[in-house]
Amino acid sequence: MTRTGALTRYHLELLLRSHAWLPPFLAYALLLVVGVPVGDPLLGGLGYGAGVLLPVSAWYVRGALNAEPPASRACLVAAAGPVRVQLGALLAALTVSLVLAAGQVAAVWWAGGAVAGPGAPRQPSAGAAVLAGLVASVACALLGVLAGALADRPVLGRPQYGIPTALTLAVLLLVVPVSPANTAVRELVSAARTGRIAVPWASLLAAAVLLAAVGAGTAALAGRRPE
């Protein structure tokens, strides 16, 4: 665990120094500014922000995996092993995505108006809305990292297709009705209309289990391929 933590910090530094963090951040900020006008219902804005975070998180995985030059990565793999290197990159992308999730919830809370829409039969508390929005955003961040990890498999030898593949998988995870991300976002949008908030704990748990399984699987497969 100590070595994995050190590799995570190393990949975070690489991500920041390479400026690979900047394009997804700017895209996310722009989409939030366009999609969440000041004064809009808080729950609707939180649902939108959580949904957009999913492809952005997948993008960060691609940035973390590709931030290191091939020769340097080969040396790192030889020293620490491909499994730990892969997990370190995934955890680095997840860390950045979770920071974005917290920042997004805070920004939407600051800019939002009433908690629910004007037609809602009741207005829930802002605290309950923020908790539901944060849980949904974390679930979407987890699934975004999952999409980025999955995109590492079909595009071996074709790094130029990594980001489009990751974004496509992320959008699918967002729109497929059985996806935990789709469920979490739908619950927030529904709460904006009804005023009844259900914190999407089940979606968060499902996303965590899926990411743990897929992350471990892709890391194990990384150990079987030549770097």
Rank of each mutant, 00 (worst) to 15 (best):
A27H: 07
A74K: 08
T168F: 11
L134E: 04
G148H: 04
Q86C: 14
R84T: 13
T168A: 14
V99K: 10
G35E: 03
L43S: 09
A147P: 02
A212W: 00
L32V: 06
T8D: 07
L172S: 10
A141Q: 05
T2G: 00
V171D: 02
A80L: 11
W21Q: 11
A116E: 00
V96P: 07
A89C: 12
A92R: 02
P226R: 13
D152I: 01
T4F: 02
A126T: 00
A78W: 05
V178N: 03
L204E: 13
T95V: 11
S57K: 04
V209P: 06
P164T: 13
Q86K: 13
R17P: 08
A6I: 02
M1D: 08
T2S: 15
L172D: 06
W201M: 00
A141L: 06
P154H: 09
E227R: 09
L156P: 00
L53S: 05
G81I: 07
A208K: 13
L31H: 07
L53C: 03
V130A: 14
R84L: 14
V36Q: 02
L188Y: 05
A192L: 08
A220N: 03
L100N: 03
A181T: 12
A74W: 04
L205I: 14
E13L: 15
L94Y: 07
R153F: 09
G88M: 12
A102M: 10
G144V: 03
A149L: 08
T95S: 15
V38M: 09
V77K: 01
A92H: 00
T194N: 09
A78Y: 00
N66S: 13
V77F: 04
P41R: 09
L205V: 15
R3A: 13
L143Y: 00
A149M: 06
G133W: 04
L134M: 11
A129F: 12
G223C: 00
G44M: 06
L172E: 05
R196I: 03
G223A: 01
A136R: 01
L221D: 02
A64C: 12
A170R: 06
V108R: 05
L143F: 01
V171M: 05
A191F: 08
V155T: 10
L15T: 14
V96I: 14
L173T: 02
V36P: 06
L30N: 02
Q86S: 12
P226M: 08
A181I: 06
